[in-house]
Every structure is written in C-alpha cells, then in structure tokens.
Simulated scan of single mutants.
Amino acid sequence: MPVRVPKVAVLLAAYNGMQWIEEQLASIQGQLDVDVTIYISIDPSTDGTEAWCAAYAEAHPQIFILPDAGKFGGASRNFFRLIRDVDFAPYDFIALADQDDIWHADKLRRATRAIESRQIDSFSSNVTAFWPDGRTHLLDKAQSQVAWDFLFEAAGPGCTYVFNKIFAMALKASVIADWQKVQEVRLHDWYCYAFARSHGYRWFIDPVPTMEYRQHANNQVGANKGLHSLLARYKTIHDGWWFSQVRMIARLIGQGDDPFVSSWLQLRRGQLIRLSFNAWKCRRRWRDKVFFFFVCWVFAFSGNKSE
C-alpha cells in the first residue's frame, strides 16, 4: 500500500517578482515527500509578473493564481488576503512563501514531521541570508521562547512558517472576523505568531535553517544585520510606529485586558520605564533584551505616544 504524503498548501505573495520567482517556484515544487499545491496572490506589478505567473500556472496544474483583488501596497495585506481566500479544507498543512527565496528540498518535510512528532501547531526556522556579492549569514531566531516575546517580535521570517490545519483554520477565522483591523498590521508574521501564542497554540522554532533568504534592495523586511539595519529599526521606534504596532496587535489578539499588558498599554512615561525592567520576558535574544530596555527609555521621553 502506498504511503500517504502530507498535502500542503503554499501561500505565495508576489509583487514585481520576475527576477526571482521562477527559481523560488522551482524550489517549492521540488519539495521532498509532500504533495504541494501553490496559491499565488499578485499585487499589481509593473514587470509582467501577472502574465508570467498565469502562463506558468497553465503549464503546472498544482499552481493556482488568485483573482485580481486590487492594490495591496505591502506583503502583509497580500498574505492576509491569501489566508482569507484560500480554502484550507483539502490540506493537512499550510505554509507561507515569499517570491524571492530558495527553499531547501526538505523544508516542508522537516516542518511537517516536526509538527507531527512534537505535537505542535506551528513551525518556523532559522534561515541563511545571502547577498548578491556572495556573502551569507545565519539568522538565528531559535532562542527559547519567553512569556511575552510574541507581543514584541515574530518567530522569525514568515517565509519559514508552516501551520497544521487546526491552527490555520483558527487563524483564518480571526483574520476574517477582524478583516478591517488587520489591514493596519504591517507584519503578518508577527501577527500570526502573536495570535498562536496568545491562544495557546504550540510553536516550535527550529535552529536548523530550512531556506536561503535572499537580500536585495526591494526587501520589505530583510535581515536585521549591520549598522544600517539598526538605524532603521531605531527610526521606527522613535517615530512611534513600532510601539503603535505592539499596541494594535495586543488588542487584536485579545490581550489588552491582561494585567501585565494593561500596565503599559497606554505607553505613558512611567509605564514604559516599568516595562523596560521586564525586558527579559519580552524578547528572546539577549542582545534584543538589552536593546528593548533602552528602547523603552528612549520612547518614554520621545513624546510620540498618541493613541
């Protein structure tokens, strides 16, 4: 009797992806020991991505292009559209994919087996960032999870995320129920992780990298490496964007009334200073705990704390 392989729906968000998408699709189609179906949602592009994907899908019956849905203006809204519109019923697992990476051949096999053997609901992993000049760098996101990290960071790049059907259906229901509000969430991977952890779903972050994470000028969110990245992160904090996202996600996932969360949710100066002394349970990596401590103090005195 043939062994049944897991059925995986891969949700791929595309925008001006002609330079890389064919290599990415080949790496997804080459996954070992899984039955893969790919759903592509395309943000209106100027480089012919729509026409190329339509022709490619015609030649590959396991690839489907979602109907045009207008301008998304960012990967997050595109992924939320995929989560809302793709029917998960025929599949055992749901995976997210960017258009420009290269998956290891065993990426989905490793993820689905981990979900089953560890009895978890969601999987993510480390990745190897790579640049056009040949440089590579391991992005290590697999530090131990702490009590409140999900309110302040994602579980790593969303392109590594794989969900079992139970969690995927719950996530879909939350996106549909709060459709207008999630349009303001700028990082879908952060929201997915926050929703999972806040609702008791089990998440494993694999220290083994499962893909090559391409770095280029058009990355919406790239590798947090180097001085330029640090300065960019500081700007989002000083301008109030990061904390506004923290507050929005906390409320969306129903954590606004938790005593710990409500103690700082208004982002008043004294509240932020007290929050800084809880840095150890708000970020996973030691370096980020230190950064978080100083960020709270900087923002406490920045004056950018409006609702």
Rank of each mutant, 00 (worst) to 15 (best):
M1E: 14
V3M: 12
R4L: 15
K7R: 13
L12T: 08
A14M: 09
Q19S: 06
S27R: 04
S27T: 15
Q29M: 06
V36N: 05
T37E: 12
I40L: 01
D43I: 00
D43M: 02
D47W: 05
D47G: 04
W52A: 02
Y56P: 01
E58L: 11
H60L: 10
Q62L: 09
N78V: 04
F79W: 10
D87S: 08
F88S: 10
Y91I: 11
L96S: 10
D98I: 00
D100F: 11
R109H: 15
E116H: 15
R118N: 14
F123W: 05
T128D: 12
F130N: 08
G134A: 13
Q143G: 06
Q145D: 10
A147V: 10
A147H: 13
L151K: 03
F152P: 00
E153V: 04
L171R: 04
V185Y: 01
L187M: 11
A196S: 10
S198A: 15
Y201F: 14
Y213F: 15
R214L: 07
Q220E: 15
N224G: 09
G226Y: 14
G226D: 12
L227W: 12
H228K: 12
L231F: 07
L231K: 03
R233Q: 12
H238N: 03
I249N: 05
I249E: 01
L252N: 05
D258P: 04
W264T: 07
W264R: 05
L265N: 05
Q266R: 06
R268V: 12
R269C: 03
R269K: 13
L272D: 03
I273D: 02
I273G: 00
S276T: 03
F277Q: 08
C282H: 02
R287A: 09
F291T: 10
F294S: 09
N304H: 13
K305L: 02
K305C: 09
S306E: 08
